[in-house]
Design a protein around this nucleic acid. Structure first.
Lengths: 117, 117
DNA sequence: TCATATAGGGATAAATTAGTCCCCTATTGT
DNA sequence: ACAATAGGGGACTAATTTATCCCTATATGA
């Protein structure tokens, strides 16, 4: 695994939430798990642009940060289900606020983003 | 300048807000500009861990995304002031929500982040 | 005269994140 | 026998982001 060479700042709330939500697919993973898509293969189908590998890594980090739990059913073929922890559920309204702002300003945002490339 | 090789998704609100807020220091820049710290040198002092270069680059992107404006005073030594646009002001409550969640769960977050390294 | 402050950017290196490719296990369907 | 599905991870490469170093210009204060 990769070992950080720069220790992150953990001074304020923004630093902290950044540490747990940064990652290309983490917010979406939390969102879809909250919607009830629990199995890894389901999540991969919901987020087809993400590579399987990276989704697994980000799910693992979400688990280490105690936002989700991973339940393994000892069956074959294997079955795994992710769920939000109580802690994880508290971050959903924040993600909703992010998405809502993006949606409200969708046209303008698409415009300025595409202009800049 | 660096040219993207992977075209970003711009499907949902989360994609869009991600495009404009991603960047190690962007959220803090918006926050401090909102607090009235307008000049580049002020911002650099508020965020000493960031390199000058990167702050300039991220400010430029915020400007291209129309979240801030840059006013140049034709004096010597040069003087520049950044301000939030009306559009930029609308994102402040969202940033506040992020920071508040981080602050509310500060101890727990520091704990799980440090545990994982 | 030399250091400092102000604002900015090119060239390049380092750090970090994400992606591809391949391999393993065991079951079910064709 | 072979492909597909389910979940996971090592080795490695590519993409992206951030940092370092150095150079520009002018004015003021020590």
């Amino acid at each position: 695994m990769y070992e950080r060479k720069v220790i992150p700042n953990l001074n304020c709330g923004l630093d902290l939430i950044g540490e747990v939500l940064y990652g290309k697919w983490k917010i979406r993973l939390l969102w879809f798990i909250n919607e009830g898509h629990k199995r890894p293969s389901e999540l991969q189908r919901k987020i087809p642009d993400a590579s399987r590998r990276v989704l697994n890594m980000q799910l693992k980090e979400l688990e280490e940060h105690e936002l989700v739990t991973r339940k393994i059913y000892p069956v074959v073929p294997p079955k795994v289900e992710y769920s939000l922890t109580e802690f994880g559920k508290t971050v959903i309204p924040v993600i909703a606020a992010l998405g809502q702002w993006g949606d409200e300003h969708g046209d303008r945002l698409r415009n300025v983003i595409l202009k800049q490339l």
